[in-house]
Simulated assay, not measured.
Amino acid sequence: MAEAALRRIAAGTSLHRIHRTHHSAIFFGPIGSEPQGRFDAPDGSFKILYAARSLETAFGETLVRSPQNPFVLSTAVAARVRSELLVTSTLRLYPLVDGGVSKLGLSFTDLHGDAYAKTWAVSAHIHGATNADGILYTSRFDNQRCVAIFDRAASSIAESSKINLPFPPSEAAKLSEKFGKIYVEP
C-alpha cells in the first residue's frame, strides 16, 4: 500500500463529537477487541476516537446512520451528548479524501459503505506502517471532513469547556432537517 503526504490539523482547532452519555468526551473504542466502527483495529491492537470538524457533520455521522430511514428519533438523541475537543498539538492524519484512496485498494464505496473489512485492514496498515496520528476521511452524509484518531495520539487532544452537553429538541430538529430527516419525539 502506498504512502501519502500526511494532512495536518493545527493545535487550537476544535473537533466535535456526539457520543453516548456513558462514554467520556475523549473515548477511544471500541470496548473489547471486536471492531465495530469504520476504522477500528481488526484485532483490537489499537483504539480509535471518532470526531468531525463540525457539529453538523458529527450529527450526521452519529444519528443519520440509515439513509433510508426518514426519521431521527428523540430517544436516540437523548442517549447521546455533544462535546467539543481541542487539538493541543498538531495532528498528522493519513488522507482518505481524494483519488489516492485507490492506491490502497479502496473506492469511496468502500469508505462510505457499511461493510468494514477493507477499512479495518487499511486502518491497521496505516497504524502499523506510518507515523500518522489517525485518518482524515469524508463523511458519507455531507462530504465534510471527519477524523479517526489513533490512541497513540491521545495526548494531542483535550476536552474543551463544552463537553457532555445535551441536545435541545429544537436543535436536534434543525440538524435532522439539514439531512432531510424528521425529528420524532415520543
Rank of each mutant, 00 (worst) to 15 (best):
residue 36 Q to P: 04
residue 37 G to T: 08
residue 37 G to W: 02
residue 39 F to C: 06
residue 40 D to C: 12
residue 41 A to N: 14
residue 43 D to H: 12
residue 44 G to I: 15
residue 48 I to Y: 01
residue 48 I to P: 00
residue 55 L to Q: 07
residue 62 T to Y: 07
residue 64 V to A: 10
residue 64 V to Q: 08
residue 65 R to D: 13
residue 65 R to E: 10
residue 66 S to C: 12
residue 68 Q to S: 11
residue 69 N to I: 15
residue 69 N to L: 11
residue 77 V to K: 03
residue 79 A to T: 03
residue 79 A to F: 05
residue 80 R to A: 07
residue 87 V to S: 02
residue 90 T to G: 07
residue 94 Y to E: 06
residue 94 Y to L: 13
residue 95 P to M: 08
residue 96 L to M: 14
residue 96 L to T: 00
residue 97 V to S: 13
residue 97 V to G: 02
residue 100 G to Q: 10
residue 100 G to T: 10
residue 102 S to R: 11
residue 104 L to S: 06
residue 105 G to R: 09
residue 110 D to E: 12
residue 116 Y to R: 09
residue 119 T to K: 05
residue 122 V to G: 01
residue 125 H to A: 13
residue 127 H to D: 03
residue 127 H to T: 00
residue 128 G to F: 04
residue 130 T to Q: 05
residue 131 N to S: 10
residue 131 N to Q: 12
residue 132 A to E: 04
residue 135 I to E: 02
residue 135 I to L: 05
residue 137 Y to I: 01
residue 138 T to Y: 00
residue 139 S to G: 07
residue 142 D to R: 05
residue 143 N to I: 03
residue 147 V to G: 00
residue 147 V to N: 01
residue 147 V to L: 08
residue 153 A to Q: 08
residue 156 S to G: 14
residue 159 E to N: 13
residue 162 K to Q: 15
residue 165 L to T: 12
residue 166 P to E: 15
residue 167 F to M: 12
residue 167 F to R: 08
residue 173 A to G: 05
residue 174 K to C: 06
residue 175 L to G: 01
residue 175 L to Q: 00
residue 176 S to H: 03
residue 180 G to P: 06
residue 183 Y to E: 01
